[in-house]
Design a protein around this nucleic acid. Structure first.
Lengths: 134, 134
DNA sequence: AAATAAGTTAACGTTTACGTAAACGTTAAT
DNA sequence: ATTAACGTTTACGTAAACGTTAACTTATTT
């Protein structure tokens, strides 16, 4: 059992390569709610860590912290009416995500096409102009 | 032949559901370079329009305008050395895009898992509590 | 040609997501 | 018991990506 169950703010900051300020900011806007020691220092549970990980994934994908909040909060709804609302919202998000994957595939195709053209162009140029020595 | 070849700023703004200000801003930072009429008003060619489309796709995908600039500029390199640099850069971008697709798939799985759990939970609650009429 | 609509630049305002610094308390190491 | 090293709050600063308003010019409509 190598898994730690508690983390300090700088441990998490280092692990995820972000600043402590960023983590504090996420708490400030209610994205994280770590416990505190008697000395008032933050202690992050494994759940907190998992949540942070999710937040950062969302960020890499270009979601705003508001959008991320809406997604991570899906984990803790409990009232039936809220569950129904959340399900609807979640389905919308899922569609968006699928669209996004599609758009990324298109972008990928575009870049691949450019790549081909550049390689062609380069061949021509090198052919015409003779080799420049390294 | 239904295709227009020139557009005004508000036509494009309407078509893509953005503000004219946004388009002007993109010109301001050099992402677009429309021609002008004698009266100094912007006229956008089909190329300009295509470019704007690309920019907006990049935005939806969460890229910064700087990143987008680097990508759209790949279209117009011509010097051999620049082509080589661009190719390297493009390959990096392609890898990033593939990673991004992976992460989106993961996010999708997460959301699907939450969805399942919510549906289960809802079934339980509705079962226990009897049906509330609409 | 007069009015209305659309476009222009310039400049200041706003939101998001933190960075940075000050001033101070807590924990760990020597 | 002192230092470091690390942590805390408060508050002001900042970059990106526009929004908003003003003051003015150009196009279009009637």
């Amino acid at each position: 059992m190598k898994e730690k169950k508690e983390y300090t703010i700088s441990e998490l900051a280092k692990e995820f390569d972000i600043s402590p300020r960023t983590i504090r900011y996420y708490e400030e806007i209610g994205l994280l709610s770590p416990k505190r020691t008697k000395g008032n220092q933050r202690i992050f549970s494994r759940k907190d860590r998992a949540r942070l990980k999710l937040i950062l994934r969302g960020k890499r994908l270009g979601f705003s912290l508001e959008e991320i909040r809406e997604m991570v909060e899906m984990y803790e709804v409990s009232e039936p009416e809220q569950i129904r609302v959340t399900l609807k919202y979640g389905d919308k998000r899922l569609k968006e995500i699928e669209e996004r994957i599609q758009e990324l595939e298109m972008l990928k195709e575009d870049l691949l096409a450019i790549r081909e053209r550049l390689i062609e162009r380069l061949k021509e140029l090198e052919g015409k102009e003779g080799k420049k020595e390294k």
